[in-house]
């Protein structure tokens, strides 16, 4: 049996990759994907801890996380499409409407 700390460490690595990606990437779609990766890293933690504590609480949280992520993606991609339609560009540095 693989110990639980392995899963937690793996999820830590994935989460960090997601965080760094959000900070480094300029394309909002790629930033979005990095956020999805962070969510999934958290999901892995929930599932692993649920398995090792022997409860189904972890799985419940993951179900809700999945549903919320699906809603978030539909709205987020809608925002990106709208920004592209109005500005013909989606570079995050150029999209600073609230600043000007």
């Amino acid at each position: 049996m693989v110990p639980v700390s392995y899963y937690l460490s793996l999820s830590a690595v994935l989460f960090t990759i997601g965080v760094v990606g959000v900070l480094v990437k300029r394309n909002p779609i790629q930033v979005f994907m990095c956020i999805e990766l962070m969510l999934n890293a958290a999901n892995l933690t929930f599932i692993a801890l649920g398995r090792f504590y022997g409860t189904s609480v972890g799985e419940m949280y993951v179900i809700f996380a999945l549903a919320v992520a699906a809603a978030e993606v539909s709205v987020g991609l809608g925002i990106i499409v709208t920004i592209f339609r109005t500005r013909q560009s989606i570079d995050l540095d150029e999209t600073a409407l609230l600043k000007s």
Binding site: P3, S5, L8, S9, S11, A12, F15, T16, F52, Y53
Partner: peptide
Amino acid sequence: VLFISGIFFEI
């Protein structure tokens, strides 16, 4: 930080 909190975790 995450590693330190995760790698010594035991149930």
